[in-house]
Amino acid sequence: MRRRLITGLSSAAIALATTAALAAPANAADKLQVMSDWSQTSASSQQAFLNARANQGDWSEYGFDWSTDKCSSSPDNPFGFPFENACIRHDFGYRNYKAVGQFDANKSRLDSAFYEDLKRVCNGYSGAQKTACDGLAWTYYQAVSAVGVAPADTAAKTGKAA
C-alpha cells in the first residue's frame, strides 16, 4: 500500500512539474531565437512573421512589442506599391531587438530583411512599374540603413513620445 502511494505521488509530482515547465514563460534565449527566425531575409521568414502577427496571442508569453508606425513618415504604399507589411516587420525587429539590448548587433540584418521584403513586392511588377518600385525600395532601404533608429531612440533624442 505504501509503495502505491509513493508511486502515485511521484507520478503526480512529475506530471505537475511537466505541466509547469510547459506553462513557464519563454526564456531569453528562446525569445532571441524566435526573433531571429522572424527577421531573416528569406520569404519563409517573412511569412512566418506575418503568420505570427496574425496570431499574436499565441506568442504572448514572449512579451513581444507588436506596435508599429508602419513606414513612419514615408508613405506605407507609395504610388500603390504595398510596402506596409515590410515596414511592419522592420518595426517589429527594431522595437524588439532594442528591448533586449541586441539592436546594434542585428540592425544590418533587419535592414537587409526589410530590403528583401520590398524587393519581393517589386517582383510582382514588370516593365516601368517594376523599375519604379525597385527605385523606391532602394530609397526606403537607404533611408533606414543610413538613419534608421529605434522609435524609443527618436523619442529620447527629441524628448517626445514615440
Rank of each mutant, 00 (worst) to 15 (best):
D69W: 12
D91S: 14
A146E: 06
R120Y: 04
P82W: 04
S45C: 02
N85F: 11
K107A: 11
P78I: 07
V144F: 04
Q40N: 03
Y115K: 06
S108Y: 07
E84I: 03
P78R: 10
L110V: 04
T41W: 00
D134E: 13
S73K: 12
V144W: 01
R53Y: 15
D65I: 05
N51T: 09
D58F: 11
S72F: 02
S112R: 13
T68E: 13
A128I: 14
E116W: 11
S73N: 13
D134R: 01
Y140N: 03
F92Y: 10
D69R: 15
K107R: 15
F114M: 03
Q102P: 01
S145I: 03
A48P: 02
S145E: 14
K98E: 15
Q47A: 09
P78F: 12
G80N: 09
C87V: 11
F83H: 04
N77V: 11
N123K: 11
G148E: 09
A86P: 01
P75F: 06
G80F: 06
L50I: 01
A99D: 07
Q142K: 08
N106F: 00
D104K: 03
F103D: 02
R53P: 02
A48F: 02
H90Q: 10
T131S: 15
A137E: 08
A54F: 07
A52I: 01
G124T: 10
S145P: 01
Q46K: 03
L118W: 03
L118G: 02
P75M: 06
Q46W: 02
N96P: 08
D65N: 15
S112P: 00
R53D: 11
L110I: 14
